[in-house]
Amino acid sequence: MTTVTKGLVFHEEGHKYTLDGKRTTSVTTILSGGIPKPFLVPWAARRAAEYAIANPGASLDEIRTAPDRERDTAGIRGTAVHDIAERIIHGAPVDVPEELYPYVDGYVRFLDAFRVEPVLVEKTVAHRGMGYAGRFDAIVRLPGLNGSDPVMVDLKTSNGVYRETKAQCAAYSCADFYVEPDDPATELALPVIQASYVAHITPEGTELHPLARDRAELLEHFEIFKHAHAIYRFGLAKHKVLDPIPYPAIEFEEAS
């Protein structure tokens, strides 16, 4: 007999979510399928061409997969920076690899400059009605910007800050509940998020970009997420063009 784990669980392996034992779609998966990213194709083509020029003896497969390798390397670095950032914001000691020191140094300076006060860090959330789950980076207070109001901050180590992050933060902020990893069955209420930001962590430093400047704008971004969710679901459905309608029976008069 299979035992179903009640509650919301984040599975590190495969980066997936289950709610009461059933697979739940992630916020990032919905956004990937619901918001077009037209820049990805020319980016991949450019990276492949650059690799081919820099490596004249490369095989076709090496050239073709060069953008994937670059993306995966960036993903590994981003995960490492996120893990270190989570410990730092709680004041825990960390060992920083030399290659990540510029990222971490800038992040620490950002925390000090904006007097960041953590409220909730790296929690898993879900929305039962819409059937999604996700894991946000941090809910914090920024006394110099938003006083005591809780705000959502997403950490990015990518080359840029992209528009879908607005919808991503809104989805986390408007989720039904969050859970603690050691008690996935207890649904806890999120604080009412009043604004959202991206902390863009780069080797040159960390910059704070506003996404939703107030609660009203955050709810507008959630509407965008709802539309992306509908497009994502449409893409999953087995929609097809139906068979043609038969011509109606028509009696033709013989020509006189």
Rank of each mutant, 00 (worst) to 15 (best):
R109H: 12
V121T: 15
E98H: 13
L60D: 15
E62N: 06
I88M: 10
F39L: 13
R47V: 13
G131Q: 02
F114C: 06
A54G: 07
Y107R: 01
I30K: 00
R115H: 14
L111E: 04
A126R: 01
R47K: 15
E98M: 09
I84Y: 00
G75N: 13
A85Y: 01
N55Q: 11
E50M: 04
Y132Q: 02
V96Y: 00
I63E: 03
G106T: 02
D112P: 00
A92P: 00
Y107A: 01
R64K: 12
F114E: 12
V41E: 14
V119S: 01
I76L: 09
D72H: 14
V119W: 03
T124Y: 00
G78I: 03
Y132E: 02
I53M: 06
T73F: 02
G106A: 06
L40T: 11
V81S: 03
P42F: 08
P42Q: 09
Y51W: 11
E122P: 01
D105K: 14
R115M: 09
A126I: 03
A74D: 11
H90G: 07
A92I: 04
D83Y: 04
V104D: 02
H127I: 02
I35K: 05
G91T: 05
A49K: 13
V94M: 10
A44L: 05
L31H: 00
I63A: 02
D68S: 14
L120V: 12
I84M: 08
R46V: 09
R71S: 08
P36R: 07
P93E: 10
T65A: 05
H90C: 07
L111Y: 08
N55W: 08
S32E: 11
D72I: 14
R64E: 08
V81G: 02
V96N: 01
N55E: 06
D83E: 12
A66Y: 00
R64S: 09
H90I: 01
V108I: 15
L111G: 03
T65S: 09
A52F: 02
E86S: 11
F114I: 02
Y103I: 03
A74M: 14
D83L: 09
E86K: 10
V125P: 00
A52S: 10
I89G: 01
G57A: 13
P118H: 08
K37D: 13
L111T: 03
V108L: 09
L40R: 13
V96R: 01
K37V: 10
A54M: 08
S32D: 12
P67A: 08
F114D: 05
T65C: 06
A80D: 12
I88A: 07
T79S: 14
R128A: 12
R87I: 03
P56S: 12
T124V: 15
Y51K: 04
I76M: 10
L120Q: 06
S59E: 09
Y103C: 04
